[in-house]
Each structure stands twice: as C-alpha cells, then as structure tokens.
C-alpha cells in the first residue's frame, strides 16, 4: 500500500525572485507524526501550503510526485482539490485568532465544513460539532457553539481549530506551528490532545515547528529543513542520538536544556544568518555558516545514508 502522503522533489517559487522550496521529499504514513523542523524562512510552511495547493498568488509549485492516498494531487483541478481540503486532508494554523472568521460564531464555522463536504443537515452538523468540542476537552460545548472567536481564550480557540479540522474525519492533518502562540502550560495540553486524537483516530500528521523540544516529544520521524531543502531526515530517536548534518548538530547545541548547561558556559550558537536563496542557487545552502565547508560545497551536494531511513545532504562521510 502506498504511503498516506508522498512528496518527491517538491519545488516552490514566487515569481523569478525567490526560490522557497528546492527539491523537498518526504512521506507521511498513516498513524505517524512527521515533524518538519527548521527556522523561519526555511520553507516549512510553504511546503505545507504547496501540498494543500494554497500558495499565494504568484507562487508556483513543481514536483516529481505529489500524491495523497495514492491519488496524484498535481492532476487535480481546483474543484477537486477543494473537495479534499478540510475533508480528507485538514490543516491547523498557527494563529487561531486570524484563521477563524471573527464575524461568525464557532458553531456556524464548524458546521459549514460538514454541510459543504458531506451535505449534512444543520442539525446533524451541530450535533457533530458539539461532540467534537467535547472530544477536544471543551466543557459546555453548547455554549461555545454560540460564541464568537473573540470571546474565547487562545487555548480554547486552538481547540476549536482542531475540532473543526476533525469535522470530516480527515486522514491527514497538517498542523503548522499549532502551539507557538500559546503559553507553555496550554501548549502541553494541546500537544497531548493532538497525540491522543492521532492515536485514537489513526491520523497521519505533518507537524511543522521550530521547537526541537516538541519534535523530540511527539515526532515519529523528523525532517530538518534549511534554506528550502530537507537537509536531514531520520527516525526521531536516531536523529537526536546521531545527527549527521552540521546544521542539525548546531541546532541541537543551541537549545538550552534545564539542568544540562552550566551558567558560565556560553550556549552553542550558529554564527551568521539564513541566506536568501535566489533561483539558480547551487550547492549547500548552509555552507556560509558551516565550519566544515570547503570549495566543493559550492557544487552539487551528495545525499548520503547513515543508516536505513536516515538520510542527509552533506559531503561529510557518515
């Protein structure tokens, strides 16, 4: 059986100026959480939007393969894609305040999804919405259905977003920084909820985050993105135990871990900043910041395998 989501050599650009994603490949299996991790501007959110065909005007995508449940997404027209979106593949965004419509009640936004995709009656849709609100840990769902987004706290809004994404029993959930705007205490609650739902419903999840703590705790598999490329991909434990790409290694050294660092010791850091990638850029995007870089890094970079399922893009030997 094919994987739930297969992306091969995805390229995304905006006009002739910026190349946002340069040949990204990843797969999401049923029941697994694949984390796409990287810093701002590395192309992780754009990858998600390209998969959903939600790129801003002027953006283009190309891929060798882009398939969902074995169906070729590249061949689908806008209407075909609209039938999938919010239905079999759903998305949760970072900022629930801006992704919920402030002018409609929670109930009307939630039921619209089911009525549109499944032709359900208002009554059946309302019942399902109330069930799902309860399922995501919202007390008094009946009351919440009649409220507007501004009447809810950030954590509640994010729960509403999750419940809304689940309305049509999706197979794939794409979550883009779902907890970044929340307090750490609420973040833990939301992540637990997502993990639980995923286990119970057998969802495949593509989770986009910049937080290595979240990756370590929830991911089955991790892809590290830098300057539009997946530079390393491995099972979670493998990646944290034996990172191969200098960028992954640097990123792991930057994270302060309680009880592990001495105060008078500086944190590890990566000098420099992320480069701007123009179309036609060649070689390793990290070479300007990499201590191991040499002249060959300006040319094509080999993809190497450190262990089965653990690939990385770098000239350095495993």
């Amino acid at each position: 059986m094919s994987a739930l989501l297969e992306v091969e050599q995805l390229e995304v650009g905006f006009g002739s100026r910026t190349s946002a994603v340069r040949g990204t490949s990843l797969t999401v299996e049923r029941g697994e959480t694949h984390c796409l991790v990287g810093e701002s501007g590395c192309g992780k959110s754009v990858t998600a939007l390209a998969i959903m065909n939600l790129l801003a005007r002027g953006g283009y995508r190309r891929a060798r393969r882009l398939s969902f449940q074995g169906n070729d997404l590249l061949k689908l027209d806008d209407r075909g894609m609209a039938r999938l979106r919010g239905n079999a593949m759903a998305m949760i965004f970072q900022e629930p305040m801006t992704s919920l419509n402030p002018a409609y009640t929670v109930g009307s936004q939630m039921t619209e999804v089911l009525r549109r995709h499944k032709g359900a009656s208002q009554r059946a849709a309302t019942d399902r919405a109330a069930d799902l609100l309860a399922r995501v840990g919202i007390t008094a769902p009946g009351l919440r259905l009649g409220q507007f987004p501004h009447q809810l706290s950030g954590g509640l809004r994010q729960r509403v977003m999750i419940a809304m994404a689940l309305m049509c029993d999706p197979q794939l959930l794409i979550a883009d920084e779902p907890t970044t705007a929340l307090d750490v205490t609420v973040q833990a609650q939301i992540l637990r909820l997502l993990a639980e739902l995923q286990r119970d419903l057998g969802l495949g999840m593509l989770l986009i985050t910049h937080d290595l703590g979240i990756v370590a705790r929830v991911a089955t598999r991790v892809s590290v993105m830098y300057a539009g490329e997946v530079v390393e991909s491995a099972a979670t434990a493998q990646l944290f135990a034996d990172p191969k790409h200098p960028y992954t290694q640097g990123l792991l050294r930057c994270v302060p871990v309680p009880g592990k660092q001495r105060q008078d010791e500086p944190l590890g850091s990566i000098p420099g900043t992320v480069p701007r990638i123009d179309p036609g850029f060649e070689g390793c995007g990290f070479r300007e910041r990499c201590t191991f870089a040499d002249a060959s890094c300006a040319h094509a970079v080999p993809q190497q395998t450190a262990a089965p399922g653990h690939d990385y893009l770098c000239r350095l030997a495993p």
Binding site: G137, I138, T139, V184, T185, Q187, A188, Q189, L191, R192, A195, D211, L212, G213, I214, V215, A216, R217, V218, A219, T236, A237, F240, A241, L252, V255, V257, P258
Partner: peptide, 21 residues
C-alpha cells in the same frame, strides 16, 4: 510550569501538567 518544559529528549512524550481547563 517546570513540568511543561519540553526538553529535546526523545521518548518522554508530552507531560500531563494537570492544570485543568
């Protein structure tokens, strides 16, 4: 608060901070 800190240690899962809603 301390329990909610997600350190980059794989395999520990997400803690239950027990603060309720």
């Amino acid at each position: 608060l301390l329990a909610s800190v997600l350190t980059p240690e794989p395999g520990l899962g997400v803690p239950d901070v027990g603060l309720g809603d």
